[in-house]
Design a protein around this nucleic acid. Structure first.
Lengths: 229, 229
DNA sequence: CCAAAAGTGTTTCACTTACACCCATGA
DNA sequence: TCATGGGTGTAAGTGAAACACTTTTGG
């Protein structure tokens, strides 16, 4: 690393792909832009990195400011640095992806009064900048990671049925899973604890609710256990 | 993303963890710093991102300038943005990792006359900045990725013996592998082609040399094949 | 009593693992 | 001829995949 600091600098932003899961569909949180460029177009939440905050803090701040989301699963995705990704000037963006329990978070009106809304991943509008590419990268990451890390639970309510969990995996992985084999496998990992409750308000036999046991997972991981679907 | 561009900006650099494999050891390329801070300490090759180059181009340029390396495997690793990672001012760095065939590349004296040298991963000097953490992250990535992507070959000469390949995996994964099972598995993938040659200059039966067949791999991948050790 | 989803075991097959000896070569 | 690594097959065990019916509940 040179010792001079005289180069002109690219601008640095963070953008966040926020995933949710609802009504059997994978969703992404988008914000409608109020000004040029791409005024009126949908975009990922994000903004400039301040000098007194880390990248992750910048992402958390933007999530909080633009959508009222706090305390969600957040992980760095990739850094995008194409020369023309912003038509005005050189902007490098560090992309994150977040997983939120949609049932537990209500979207707040964004601080600066721009519209924030959930969109089904399979029915997206045209996006601003290179955000379609960022989203695509996030989907690939999610699809890969969900198989060997227990992050799927971040998208479900704290208590969920095995069928909900299976549907989640089916949507993310894009293929059907065998019900018996899925249950056998997930229960054999000993990561879920059965609650005393069952789902409410269904017109058929009510399914038992389970909870993901984070402590158990950590203990197993330390002993060399590795999650895999 | 806001529409104003008035914020002060962090400096933006790239740093590269260059892995090599030689004499049964995994190595990393380090550069001895000539000036403060950390004058005399070893550091990862890297430098500022220019406005007219992508992040990957910046990494390639630094590799070429500081070590004379060109046309190597290069992949983005992670972006590090801790507030105090550079004692002078705020610097965000996009880290890459590279895999090079040590037998095929000679280290050139660096353009600006700083020393570049290979260090065994298990006998590293104290590093400048947060470079020890970056290197650690790269090792974890390499260890994970080598199991499900055929990137190990990037570290070996174009023609190699099965024993060399096995040793490479053993060093990266940090555990012994069974010789017969390893050969069975790797050959059953049908990714290696036997050359007519054998290794030279050994005081025992000479091993056959193999070549990784990139075309075959791509064709298999398109048909849903997935590499796994 | 009907519709709808919950819940449950067994068999088959493929893959992984463990394991030991003879062979070829150069010194 | 000896030291050194090259090269090879089989059996046992484990985990994945395929597959269909009964149970519970609310309407």
């Amino acid at each position: 690393m040179p010792h001079t600091y005289t180069y002109p600098r690219p601008a640095l932003t963070v953008d966040i792909v926020v995933f949710g899961f609802d009504e059997g569909d994978l969703k992404v949180l988008l914000i409608q832009r109020g000004c040029e460029p791409f005024a009126g177009r949908w975009a990922l939440p994000g903004g400039f990195v301040h000098l007194d905050e880390t990248l992750e803090q910048a992402a958390e701040r933007e999530l909080s400011e633009e959508a009222g989301l706090r305390d969600v699963f957040l992980e760095q995705l990739y850094t995008f640095g194409a020369l023309d990704r912003d038509p005005r000037e050189r902007v490098v963006t560090v992309a994150y992806y977040a997983l939120v329990k949609m049932s537990g978070h209500h979207l707040q009106a964004s601080t600066d009064a721009r519209a924030a809304a959930w969109h089904a991943v399979h029915a997206l509008p045209s996006l601003a900048f290179d955000h379609a590419g960022i989203l695509e990268t996030a989907l690939i990451r999610l699809k890969g990671k969900v198989r060997y890390q227990p992050i799927g639970f971040e998208l479900l309510p704290a208590k969920f049925t095995l069928t909900q969990l299976q549907h989640l995996y089916e949507v993310i992985l894009g293929r059907a899973l065998d019900k018996r084999n899925f249950r056998k496998k997930i229960l054999s990992m000993d990561l879920l604890v059965e609650t005393a409750e069952v789902e409410q308000g269904v017109a058929h036999r009510a399914a038992r609710l389970y909870r993901f046991d984070e402590r158990k997972y950590r203990r197993l991981t330390e002993r060399g256990f590795s999650f895999e679907i």
